[in-house]
């Protein structure tokens, strides 16, 4: 536990002693607000954050891999992995420590979008529960994207390669749930397979959660995804840490 905490603390500090955190936060906050106000936030004449949350899956496709790419690529490129894994820290403690640190960082980024609910509250009387569900869904989804990013970060020593692979991985997982993709897939795949693939998408589970319906199936989807990808990341590192 102490090993995991030490890694987590160092990693979280690492975001803020380099410009990574500030560049990330500024860009994330700018685009989340820009896309919301550019979308139908005022025109909808409803005091809710539907438009704001609707953009999250797409925004995360680019933003989360950017926060995740350095986690292991940098460690392997600089050789500091040899230091880390000869301290009394297991691979799993290190993997979890880094994952939790990055997740907390994304939580901070989400938390800093607080002017959005404040704006909605100023303009009308929004449903607090709905907004809370939206944030919970966004946070869980960020964790799932991050787990994908972690895995690809462990795959390559090159941060650019890690970033691109993670973006593609996340984009595939989102696009499976988009209606255009489904229509296309339906043209040559059997219906059962199309709906099975749809069930694998971030989009579908996120949509139902941000509408305020918190179902066990949706939460467990994100949890399984996180456990699976983080687990794969750990196995990958066990095998390739010295490669």
């Amino acid at each position: 536990m102490k090993g995991m905490m030490a890694v987590c603390k160092r990693e979280l500090k690492g975001y803020f002693i380099t410009p990574v955190a500030y560049v990330f936060l500024v860009i994330f906050l700018f685009f989340s607000a820009y896309l919301t106000f550019k979308g139908q936030f005022f025109e909808a004449r409803q005091a809710d954050l539907r438009v704001f949350f609707e953009w999250m899956p797409l925004l995360f496709v680019f933003m989360v891999p950017a926060a995740a790419m350095r986690l292991w690529s940098e460690e392997r490129r600089s050789g500091s992995i040899e230091l880390l894994l000869t301290l009394p820290i297991t691979v799993w403690q290190a993997v979890l420590g880094k994952f939790v640190a990055a997740w907390i960082f994304l939580g901070i980024a989400l938390g800093l979008t607080f002017p959005m609910p404040l704006t909605a509250a100023y303009l009308g009387n929004p449903d607090g529960g709905l907004i809370a569900a939206g944030y919970l869904a966004s946070f869980l989804m960020a964790g799932a994207y991050l787990a994908v990013g972690c895995f690809f970060s462990a795959l390559s020593k090159n941060q650019v390669i890690s970033f691109i692979l993670a973006v593609v991985g996340c984009a595939v997982l989102v696009s499976l749930g988009l209606s255009t993709t489904q229509n296309f897939m339906a043209s040559f795949l059997p219906n059962g397979l199309v709906s099975a693939l749809e069930g694998l998408s971030f989009q579908v589970h996120f949509d139902s959660m941000q509408r305020g319906v918190i179902e066990f199936a949706d939460i467990s989807y994100f949890v399984v995804l996180i456990v699976g990808w983080v687990g794969a990341c750990g196995i990958m590192l066990q095998e390739r840490k010295a490669a």
Binding site: R10, I17, S80, L83
Partner: peptide, 13 residues
Amino acid sequence: GYLAESAPAYGEM
């Protein structure tokens, strides 16, 4: 106590 060949450390710290 182990010192690896390249004396790895976290450069930004």
